[in-house]
Amino acid sequence: DEEIEKWIETLLKRNISLRVNGKDLEIGSEEFKEWVEKFIKEV
């Protein structure tokens, strides 16, 4: 979905790490990609 890709790009540009389930996810890491894929499937 384009919306999500733009959102991810924005996050990448800002180099933010997300806190997911109490863990810091490094943007661009494998864990982050897995989380994004799960997130996309749920939406």
Rank of each mutant, 00 (worst) to 15 (best):
D1L: 15
D1Q: 11
D1G: 12
D1M: 14
D1T: 13
D1P: 09
E2W: 12
E2V: 11
E3W: 15
E3P: 08
E3K: 12
E3N: 06
I4K: 03
I4V: 09
E5N: 11
E5M: 13
K6D: 08
K6L: 06
K6T: 08
W7H: 00
W7V: 03
W7R: 01
I8A: 03
I8M: 05
I8Y: 04
I8H: 00
I8Q: 01
I8N: 00
E9Q: 07
E9S: 07
T10N: 13
T10E: 14
T10W: 15
T10V: 10
L11A: 03
L11D: 00
L12N: 05
L12R: 03
L12Q: 03
L12W: 04
L12V: 13
K13G: 09
K13Y: 10
K13N: 14
K13T: 06
K13A: 07
K13V: 13
K13S: 12
R14H: 15
R14P: 15
R14E: 15
R14N: 15
R14F: 15
R14A: 15
N15I: 15
N15D: 12
N15S: 06
N15F: 13
I16F: 01
I16R: 00
I16P: 09
I16Q: 12
I16W: 01
I16T: 09
S17W: 12
S17N: 05
S17L: 12
S17Y: 04
S17A: 11
S17P: 14
S17G: 08
L18G: 01
L18V: 09
L18D: 01
L18I: 14
R19W: 07
R19I: 10
R19S: 08
R19G: 04
V20T: 04
V20W: 05
V20S: 03
N21L: 08
N21M: 05
N21K: 06
N21F: 07
N21A: 02
N21G: 02
N21W: 03
G22Q: 02
G22V: 02
G22L: 10
G22K: 02
G22P: 01
G22R: 01
G22N: 04
G22A: 01
K23P: 01
K23T: 04
K23V: 09
K23S: 05
K23L: 07
K23Q: 05
K23E: 04
K23N: 06
K23M: 09
D24T: 08
D24G: 02
D24M: 13
D24K: 14
L25Q: 02
L25S: 04
L25W: 03
L25R: 05
L25K: 01
L25T: 02
L25I: 10
E26S: 06
E26W: 08
E26K: 10
E26V: 12
E26Y: 09
I27P: 11
I27Y: 08
G28Q: 03
G28Y: 04
G28I: 04
G28H: 04
G28N: 08
G28P: 07
G28V: 04
G28E: 03
S29V: 07
S29M: 10
S29K: 07
E30L: 11
E30D: 11
E31K: 09
E31M: 13
E31D: 06
E31Q: 10
E31W: 09
E31Y: 09
E31L: 11
E31G: 10
E31S: 07
F32G: 01
F32T: 00
F32S: 01
F32D: 01
F32H: 01
K33P: 02
K33Q: 07
K33W: 15
K33D: 03
K33M: 13
E34P: 01
E34Q: 13
E34L: 14
E34T: 09
W35H: 02
W35L: 05
W35Y: 07
W35D: 00
V36G: 00
V36D: 00
V36A: 05
V36P: 00
V36K: 02
E37K: 11
E37N: 10
E37D: 07
E37M: 14
K38H: 08
K38V: 08
K38D: 06
K38P: 00
K38E: 05
F39G: 00
F39K: 03
F39H: 05
F39P: 00
I40W: 09
I40T: 02
I40Y: 08
I40P: 00
K41F: 06
K41V: 03
K41S: 07
K41D: 03
K41M: 07
K41I: 04
K41H: 04
E42Y: 15
E42C: 15
E42L: 15
E42S: 10
V43H: 09
V43P: 03
V43L: 14
V43N: 05
V43Q: 08
